[in-house]
Design a protein around this nucleic acid. Sequence first.
RNA 1: GGGCCAAUAGCUCAAUCAGGUUGAGCGCCACUCUGAUAAGGUGGAGGCUCUCGGUUCAAAUCCGAGUUGGCCCA
Length: 1063
Amino acid sequence: MSRFGEVDDQYDPHALEEAVFEYWDETDAYERTVEHRAEGESYFFVDGPPYTSGAAHMGTTWNKTLKDVYIRFLRMQGYDVTDRPGYDMHGLPIETKVEEKLGFENKKDIEEFGEENFIEECKAFAEEQLEGLQSDFKSFGVWMDWDDPYKTVNPEYMEAAWWGFSKAAERGLVEKGQRSISQCPRCETAIANNEVEYEDVKDPSIYVKFDLEDREGSLVIWTTTPWTIPANTFVAVDPDLTYQGVRAKKDGEEDVLYVAEECVEDVLSKGRYEDYEVVEELSGEEMVGWSYEHPLAEEVPDHADHEGALEVYTADYVEADRTGLVHSAPGHGEEDFVRGRELDFPIFCPVAGDGVYTDEGGKYAGQFVKDADEEIIADLEDAGAMLHSGTVEHSYGHCWRCDTGIIQIVTDQWFITITDVKDELLENIEDSEWYPQWARDNRFRDFVEEAPDWNVSRQRYWGIPLPIWTPEDRDDDQDRIVVSTREELAERVDQEVDPETVDLHKDTVDELTITEDGTTYTRVPDVFDVWLDSSVASWGTLDFPEDDSEFDELWPADLILEAHDQTRGWFWSQLGMGTAALGEIPYEQVLMHGHALDEDGRKMSKSVGNVVEPDTAIERHGSDAMRLFLLSANPQGDDMRFSWDEMATMENHLRTLWNVFRFPLPYMRLDGFDPSETDLESVEEDLELVDEWVLARLQSTKAEMTEEMEQFRQDRALEALLEFIVEDVSRFYVQAVRERMWEEEDSPSKTAAYATIYRVLREVVALLAPFAPFVTEEIYGTLTGDDEHPTVHMEDWPAVDEDLADEQLEEDVALLRAIEEGGANARQQAGRKLRWPVQRVIVAADDERAVEAVERHETLLADRLNAREIELVSPDDRWEELAYSAEADMSELGPAFGGRAGEVMTALNEARIEEPTLEALEDAVSDVLGGEELEEEMVSFVTETPEGVAGASFGLNGDDRGVVYVDAALTEDIESEGYAREVIRRVQEMRKDLDLDVEERIALELEIDDDRVADLVADREDLIREEVRADEVGTVEDGHRKEWEVEGVDVELAIAPLAESTA
RNA sequence: GGGCCAAUAGCUCAAUCAGGUUGAGCGCCACUCUGAUAAGGUGGAGGCUCUCGGUUCAAAUCCGAGUUGGCCCA
């Protein structure tokens, strides 16, 4: 790019972004930026791998944009940042998508299709999704190492998982065992608790009588899963709860029923009993050991009947709800299972992984459990065991992928027994800093404390195979081989394997056997839970253990950055795996953001139809504006509400920046301004106050931004920068320096202004570059040409220049601006527009600093407020034309007056006094004071202005610093100028109608339908002629003619351009 | 059903930790400027600070209960 080249008049994000993409491509901007920091201090960022099913949505976009802004910021600070993106590509979600695509119903279809083919399909699907995500991420300017992402399906990554798992095994944290797990009967695999989705469904609700063996009557239990009754092993009670035996009558017959006292009424009405009496009252503890008959003893001959089975036990999961007695089947429910193991019971689970009863299910063998509900209910009714049968609406777990209702069954699974290292996990949490901190100390800690052992095995295909080999004739975990690397695999297996090329997927490794000491080992057929894949990302990113060149230096990660759903996901899985394998937490800092919600604060969802695609946002406002919007949200923990308005505002701010940037270009170009020769230091002597001021503001903006960025509050950093650009540079500095730039002659003042705005723009684009990488690139290129870095992203993060910092000056100017604002306010109150001069403006300053500011800039202030005269009233004096009222300070009033403080405040606010003294005030409000005295701190006096004068207070950061009064009384002289200005503005507008050149001369005719006003205007004819470039004033024939109304007076104006020769 | 987080102007948020007459930006309306012009300036309207209790002289803020939304868990 050539320096100070022509740029578009309009900020056009789409054309600009397209051009910048091309430029990046041509110049290898990304590669050079990375290279530029190669020698810098290492910073190990680890990308949480998005799952490769579906496109990038607004949440992913927010996430990646946040990552991008911090990576760019860190690079600018000199760090050599690891920026390898990752993709999570295994797992059940992809399997089910592929199954859908291929029209598969169950595992049999997969087996027929062939494991190898199925795995190929899954891989192709994941790769395709990955390409889509990559191009989405690139489209909004994220700079990561797109050419070399880590993929969880690559052999070196899968090896990283094997290695981590083998380390955990070495530490004795891997075991095989029975667990009650959530099983998807369609997918025929265990699924993790966090993969279970709860939905409201209608299920049976049955109250069943279990007849007691050694006494009259029955226990009453309640359940929504009749299909678990075949596996009933015991009934649980709360030892401290009171139970009652009741003799109840129905249809002339009597039943003795045992239920919790609180449930008696409810159970009896459910059973439609007509009357009852309490015959026994006892605690749960006293019922322990009672034995009962299995209600489906005949139908399920193999039911549990071992020593101790079919008896009453205590359990902590019992509540005084429904019946207060809980049907317990350790072969199904998780709590039942745990209690069953405590009691040392053998586990009876007559249901297979596909949800079909096995032969142990007796009469029901071969039926799908949910289908068997009806028959079981009928059988219970036939046996007279059914007290009540109905339905209930409740939330029930479903498979997150295929929406099939899950079942709880007990199966053999492989676990990482992280409960054995719970203390270590909790300690390791302390080694990480979280933003926000509550996410760690509340949410995460709670979760870790509760976390059960990690079931890592899945009975599926598309995943990392468990690297476990067991003797072919045994299925326990006593003798096992855990392979850690491909190298080790090649060494130990019986077959020929090339460690360089071997693919570790199931179809490859299933065939491999190991023979050692005469025993042949075969691989456990399971694959890993997909959460295990990403849990090793902190070393998988480095291709460790295959490549150990960086691990020691980089690990653990300096930063990870994800949304709050990852508390239970990746934040947790990494902690678990890091601790199990290496005894350490694998990350040092966590930035946790929220989710992107729609404009109404609801979750974006396809079914609701409220999804905003990032593409749509980019189309409407451009990538930079979208990024600014996303980055303007607080990233720490809170959800973000999407807002088109806010995004449009961001585009406007960028437009403002664009205008500021292009404003000085033509002048710099004309004057041949060369920033490399004329820097700020060389014009130091010529800097004017406003230059020094904007440079001072720049320094404090940099300081604030750096501080906020380091606290992961990029939203605040951005806010500070945008305020500087919009308020200080655009609305104040540029306004103030325009005239200097218009000067045709070379002048030191003009050069100083060039050097100043050049420095400001140069640093502003650097500061904004991480946020809006496109527009800043364009501006940077135009400002620097070929003289500096090829890309703004190679710039250093601008440091504060102490020589240019000047807090006093910042405050001075802020005061002046506040006074001007107050003056404009007062003018408006007085009903006098700025075009009409006012006789005088009175500034009553509260402190010396304000006085100094006004004294130094009296002319400027008079000019901006269009005042003939500025009067300054110093803090020691007061403007004698004023009356006063008082304003109460509640922090003083409250403690002094207690309950009456509010009343006193009102009285003070309403009081009007001549002198601003406490005595006068006390007199005025004596009614409410009740004899107590006012103290000076309690009130501040407020002025009441005389007729014709309007006043407005001015202040900084909420502190009042004085008052501006505008005396808007009219004089003939003022009216004369006012009317003349009204005419001038209208003539200018007519010139514009004719599209006249600024310098073109005209003839002017004016007819004013009011003699007094006509005379007033005539007094200023010279002013009018000069301003509108009228060489002739008189009658205009065939000119541009228009009628106006000026302050109620009809005015007719006509203009005609004069030929060049007459000028 | 449980845990965590949130609720303040039409919208996005700040003020909450350390209680003291609620603020900013955007939007809207009016006025204004007219050599940044699909701009700029000034003002105005707009808040039972989600509800109900409690503590306190005083609560958006602290405490308790609830409602709604979000995430996580069952």
